[in-house]
Simulated assay, not measured.
Amino acid sequence: MDIQHLKYKNDLNIDSFIHMLDDTTECYKFYWLDALLKLFSLGKTEIVFDDLINQMIADAWYSVVEYHLHLGPKNASGKIMNSLERAVIKLSQLTNIPNDADRDTIILAVKENDRELHGEKDQLTKNVPYRMLSPFMHEVKGNDRIWDQKKRLIAYIEQLNKKECIPYQITNGAGLKKRVVINEEWQNFFMDNFVTISGWIEVKKVRYLQGRNPGVPGIIYKLVPENNKQRKLRYVRNLWNTIIETKPVYDIYSEKLLGLDDFDIDHFVPWSFVANDELWNLLPMDSSLNSSKSNNLPQWKYFELFAKNQYMMYESAKSSEKIMDKFKKCQRDNLVMPWSMEELYIAENDREAFIKVLEEKLHPVYDSARIQGYEIWRM
């Protein structure tokens, strides 16, 4: 998303605007500006700090709780340093709302636990609202004492706005009761370029999160809850249905014989980590167990059974034209990674070679998920 090509009829300082998200050592600016735009899209032009922070927590909820992403570093003793991440984790510990709860539910929970979250929320207002405007403050350096003198800083922003229309001003008030007031000319700019600006923020946010979570795939899919995404498992289910019609297939965890109507297609390593529906990570699983496994990892001891199950599936396809037809229909959506068709699902592999290739590819993914904080599921 190249926001630098934005043109606008008013005499706004777009050059400074596009630098608002530069040099971010923390994620706060992304979530702050995103929250500001979301509330503006609801018709709000004067927004209390408290409401903005509530939105930021709701925005970060899915990435932190559902997908185990880190928003910032830990210190030497393992303490999370990022105030937004701490707020989300604390909210999760204080409530029983589901990981994929809707935004309204999350914001309501934040309000109900406002006292417990006050420290983290207050910390988030110390610098972000003001530092966001630093590209417009050409006379103020990064270590200027004014940054620690909020009344003086607010007065400076007010005077600056008289010389040059800046995106918003800040009203004096007590802590979280301060307000952001979006300037009218910038309201028109935000309205006309809402989609472009939102996309720009998302790209910046994804790049930051990838840097903080280098071993995690599919970061861009981990900003919203999983149930908002289109899943592509239909052809995989058809494949396993066809196999079950011809031979016995057992659940690798319970050893229960699976029938046509009593299994789900499950990810060995959870989708919320891998962010794909690759066939080599999918298996038929007893429906009654799938809900208890949820978003957790199986014990690695089940890998061998899983790999043998995968090998049986491919051997069945090679020996049956009908099953092979179902297998080929999975290729577009479920066999995207080139190595799967170049190294795994190839005629030359006997069972030992097949299992070895699958382990070499899947074990590092499994280990990365463990490092990221995914829990082990035990029956």
Rank of each mutant, 00 (worst) to 15 (best):
I3W: 06
N10P: 04
D11G: 08
Y31D: 12
W32Q: 03
F40E: 00
K44H: 08
I47E: 03
I53P: 00
N54R: 15
Y67C: 06
L69S: 06
G78H: 09
I80G: 09
E85G: 02
K90H: 01
D102H: 14
R103L: 05
K121H: 02
K121Y: 10
D122V: 00
D122T: 09
T125E: 11
R131H: 07
R131S: 07
H138L: 15
H138A: 14
A155Y: 00
A155N: 13
I157R: 03
I157Y: 06
N172V: 05
E185V: 09
E185Y: 10
W186R: 03
W186C: 03
M191F: 14
I201E: 06
V203M: 06
K205N: 05
V206Q: 05
P214W: 00
R231M: 12
V236C: 01
R237N: 00
E245P: 04
S254A: 11
D264F: 03
F268R: 02
V274K: 03
V274G: 08
V274Q: 05
E278T: 08
L279E: 12
L283G: 04
P284Q: 06
M285C: 05
S292E: 09
W300E: 10
A307T: 08
A307S: 12
Y311G: 01
M312G: 07
A317N: 06
E321C: 07
M324R: 12
D333S: 08
S340I: 13
N349P: 01
A369R: 00
A369G: 10
